[in-house]
Amino acid sequence: MDKQSRQATTPVAELTALDKRIINLLQRGLPVVERPFLEIAQQLGCHEDEVLERLNHLMTNKVLTRFGPMFDAVCLGGAFTLAALAVPEPEFERVTEQVNSFDEVAHNYRRSHDFNMWFVVGAESAEQVNNVINDIESKTGLPVLNTPKLEEFYVQLYLPA
């Protein structure tokens, strides 16, 4: 695991003006055509090869973490929830290990709040998600705050470089 790139201490990447324009355009999305990077290059006024070279570089340096179709995870089958724990500070490390030990826990973040641990549980069915929540409660000895999404108003991350 590349723990460094996941911490707030990660150094900010040095980017050229072209890098920034590529990052911004590609976050918004590519046209679904046979040669999408040719269209991107035309928009940027550079060569297709240059776009591919910079894009590969940005992936290698982990400035970009992923390139491809962004799927709606719910549509791939299964059920999800966002859940939280209020973990006493001295027990934080132990509880982190316990929660992360579940394969169904996909993301887990420490946050500045009494509810200081927030994680996403994904499983085949809603019943299985609830079983995992119950197992986390018995393993950690802490009550889980379960906040499954009831409605999605907006989802699109865009971080201008």
Binding site: V12, I23, Q27, V32, M70, F71, C75, Q156, L159
Partner: peptide
């Protein structure tokens, strides 16, 4: 059909 939201790149928040 909404299965794919878009074809795109995802940045590392911290690197930006």
């Amino acid at each position: 059909r909404g299965v794919i939201r878009r074809i795109a790149a995802v940045p590392n928040h911290y690197k930006l």
